[in-house]
Design a protein around this nucleic acid. Structure first.
Length: 452
RNA sequence: GUGGGUGUAGCUCAGCUGGUAGAGCACUGGGUUGUGGUCCCAGGUGUCGCGGGUUCAAGUCCCGUCACUCACCCCA
């Protein structure tokens, strides 16, 4: 059989990089729990009907099908299953299903794989991990959660800075601002305007103006006004006056400006410099109704957003009750792929092992196992040498894996342990010896980039 | 789905207008008879992505196909 080749878009990491990913996941989880979000996991599949509920066929859903199914489930979208393409839609279903058992407002975090059948690219995958936090209310959800959630995410991502993750900046807009502004201008097809303005960074203002006229039915003056607003961005509430200066009046615009100003001002107090109002942020998903968020890694803007989300009002509704929410989702795989791909972050070693017990002869293996068990009981990750090869080979075995210590039982029953990085070797008591704390487990550390 | 690029050793890649498989790193053994890294010596490194065609002769040229990759679209 030919050697298997990687499947595009289904990333698999080597152990050293997986250690980085696990560190990221641990850090996110710790932060989310500090903020009182409860853990939830939903099944990987949803009825196709659920997944396509918002007409999101563009998500390229993977279908699940039994080999022996013989078409028995073919037609009915309520029985057909698809792999979820995000965690928001399954969570909305979960909330409806368990509404009677949950307390509202309900705060949850959820870290799982999702699947999208899109063309893979740098930072874009077909199987990837998202880490979501959402707050949903029953019937209503106070606005202040729209202020709280970006702070949670900034805290979580900032906690990763100590291992070398670049700083982040959250760009925020409010659907009410956009919709009110366009409506006040007299533009009816708000969705078309949003979609077009969203392309500003890619195609430039001239093309956007042209598209606004051609596809959104805007006049020259209306298109100019849209662009003027999209150009506004500020780290404080100064954007409000600049929007007002454009002379558009609408009640929804007023409401949106008040909310957006609150998000910016409150965040500036907690985590200064990490969030800006950016009135060109649109986001394609049409269920957003209030604040919308996108997040870039500074210096890695080409990667796209690593954490996005927004306020939604009608995503979860059983017809009788609705559960408005606000949520943000970190693209863990995208983030980690950049951290390890550009060597910004690395693990200190690719194995957990702290100590390798050397073996003088195969007859000594039982004694070595016994020694290793003692070390493990005291929390020291230990393996016994795979063979009683020459000590040079056993040391090399440890060296290749980054195992920092080799343990040598002596013929007289005493013990020595060698730090193979320094070469220091000294007597050690198996019942008492401890490595320095920084050697106990693999550490995840910033890579010091050497200028070329 | 549309358009470009690339497929040669475990890895990174050379290989010219067709003429018999290459380098570095890694790996294995030895120099060093139980304490690694340096150095020296020796050695596997291979269906040249796959299939077909042209030719005396194809890694090289042509066609097809698959995979990977970049851009568009969209998004974490």
């Amino acid at each position: 059989m030919a050697r298997p080749r990687p499947l595009s878009g289904f990333p698999e990491l080597l152990p050293a990089d997986r250690i980085v990913e696990l560190h990221v996941l641990d850090t996110l989880r710790r932060t989310f729990e500090l903020w009182g979000f409860a853990p939830v996991e939903t099944r990987a599949v949803e009825p196709l009907e659920q997944l396509l509920r918002k007409g999101e066929i563009d998500k390229e859903v993977y279908l699940l099908r039994r080999l022996q199914a013989e078409g028995e489930e073919e037609g009915d979208p309520a029985r057909r299953l698809g792999l979820h393409f995000d965690l928001t839609v399954p969570f909305a279903r979960y909330v409806l299903e368990n509404a009677g058992k949950l307390q509202f407002p309900f705060r949850r975090y959820q870290i799982q794989k999702v699947w999208r059948g899109e063309r893979p690219q740098d930072g874009r995958f077909r199987e990837f991990v998202q880490a979501d936090v959402d707050v949903v209310g029953a019937g209503e959800l106070p606005f202040h959660h729209e202020v709280e959630l970006p702070i949670v995410m900034i805290e979580a991502l900032t906690a990763l800075a100590e291992v070398g993750t670049p700083p982040v900046r959250v760009h925020v807009n409010n659907r009410k601002v956009a919709e009110g502004f366009y409506a006040g201008l007299g533009l009816a097809d708000v969705a078309a305007v949003l979609r077009t303005v969203d392309k500003l960074d890619k195609v430039g203002p001239d093309v956007v103006a042209e598209l606004l006229r051609d596809e959104a039915g805007a006049s020259r003056a209306q298109a100019e006004a849209c662009l003027a607003m999209a150009r506004i961005s500020a780290p404080d509430a100064s954007f409000v006056d600049r929007v007002r200066a454009l002379g558009v009046e609408h009640p929804l615009l007023d409401a949106g400006l008040v909310e957006l100003a609150r998000v910016v001002e409150a965040t500036a107090e907690h985590v200064p410099g990490a969030l800006v109002a950016d009135l060109k942020i649109a986001r394609g998903l049409d269920y957003y109704t209030g604040t919308v968020y996108e997040t870039v890694l500074l210096g890695h803007e080409d990667l796209g957003s690593i954490c996005s989300g927004g306020r939604y009002d009608a995503l979860a509704s059983d017809g009788k009750d609705t559960y408005p929410g606000v949520g943000l989702s970190i693209g863990v795989t995208r983030l980690v792929s950049r951290l390890v791909g550009r060597r910004l972050v690395a693990a200190s070693r690719p194995v957990p092992t702290c100590v390798l017990v050397a073996l003088t002869a195969e007859e000594d293996r039982a004694a070595a196992d016994c020694l290793a068990t003692g070390l493990r009981r005291r929390g020291i990750a230990t393996e016994v040498s795979p063979s009683a090869a020459k000590f040079g080979r056993q040391i090399r075995y440890a060296d290749r894996r980054g195992i920092p210590y080799v343990w040598f039982p002596q013929a007289d029953g005493t013990h020595q342990v060698k730090d193979i990085r320094s070469g220091d070797q000294k007597d050690a008591d198996p019942a008492a010896w401890l490595p320095p704390a920084e050697d106990l487990r693999p550490r995840v550390v910033p890579v010091v980039s050497s200028p070329a």
